[in-house]
Computed example of a mutant assay.
Amino acid sequence: MSYALVTGAAKGIGAAIAIELAKLKKGLILVDVDERSLHEVAQYIQDKYYVDVFPIVQDLSQPDAAQQIFEKTKWYHLYLNIVVNNAGFGLNTPFTEGSLDDQLNIIDVNVKAQLRIVHTFVPVLKRFSESYLLNVGSTTCYQSVPYLSVYAASKAFVRSFTRSLRYELKDSTVSVSCLIPGPTDTAFVERAGMKTHTLKTAAKFNMTPQEVAQVAVKGLFKGKAEIVPGFINKLNAVVTKFVPPRIVEHVAAQIYKPRPGEQEDKKAVALQY
Rank of each mutant, 00 (worst) to 15 (best):
Phe157Tyr: 15
Phe161Asn: 05
Gln143Ser: 14
Ser154Phe: 11
Arg163Trp: 00
Glu130Thr: 12
Tyr151Ala: 13
Glu168Asn: 08
Arg166Thr: 01
Glu168Trp: 02
Asp171Asn: 15
Ser177Gln: 08
Leu165Ile: 09
Val111Pro: 05
Ala156Ser: 15
Val111Trp: 07
Gln114Ser: 07
Thr140Trp: 13
Tyr142Cys: 00
Leu165Ser: 11
Cys141Pro: 01
Ser164Ala: 14
Val150Thr: 15
Val145Trp: 10
His119Trp: 11
Ser149Gly: 15
Tyr167Cys: 09
Glu168Phe: 04
Arg166Leu: 06
Val122Glu: 12
Ser131Met: 12
His119Ser: 14
Ser129Met: 04
Ala153Val: 04
Ile117Arg: 08
Lys170Asp: 13
Glu168Met: 03
Val150Ser: 02
Ala156Thr: 15
Lys155Pro: 01
Phe121Lys: 03
Arg116Trp: 12
Ser138Leu: 10
Ser129Asp: 14
Ala156Cys: 09
Val150His: 02
Lys112Asp: 02
Arg127Ser: 09
Arg163Asn: 01
Lys170Pro: 01
Gln114Leu: 15
Glu168Gln: 14
Ser129Gly: 08
Val111Phe: 08
Phe121Thr: 00
Arg163Met: 01
Thr140Gly: 10
Glu130Phe: 11
Ala152Pro: 08
Tyr151Phe: 13
Ala156Pro: 06
Thr173Gly: 04
Lys112Thr: 12
Pro146Trp: 06
Leu115Pro: 00
Arg163Ala: 00
Val158Phe: 02
Val150Tyr: 02
Leu125Met: 09
Gln143Pro: 01
Val122Thr: 15
Val118Trp: 04
Val174Met: 07
Ala152Asp: 13
Leu133Lys: 09
Ala152Leu: 12
Ser177Asp: 03
His119Lys: 15
Leu133Tyr: 08
Arg127Asn: 13
Phe157Gln: 11
Leu125Phe: 08
Ser138Thr: 10
Val174Asn: 05
Arg159Trp: 01
Gln114Phe: 07
Lys155Thr: 05
Arg159Gln: 07
Ser160Gln: 08
Ser154Asn: 11
Val145Pro: 02
Ser177Asn: 09
Ala152Tyr: 13
Ala152Met: 07
Val136Lys: 06
Leu115Arg: 00
Arg127Gly: 01
Leu169Lys: 08
Phe121Ser: 02
Leu165Met: 10
Thr140Gln: 10
Val158Asn: 02
Val176Ala: 07
Ala156Gly: 15
Phe157His: 15
Ser172Tyr: 05
Arg166Phe: 07
Asn135Thr: 06
Thr139Asn: 12
Arg159Val: 05
Leu134Met: 13
Tyr147Val: 00
Asn135Lys: 13
Ser138Glu: 10
Val118Gly: 03
Val158Gly: 03
Val118Thr: 13
His119Gln: 14
Pro123Gln: 10
Leu125Gly: 03
Ala156Gln: 14
Leu165Lys: 08
Leu134Ser: 04
Tyr167Gln: 07
Ser154Gln: 11
Arg159Pro: 00
Ser175Leu: 12
Leu169Pro: 11
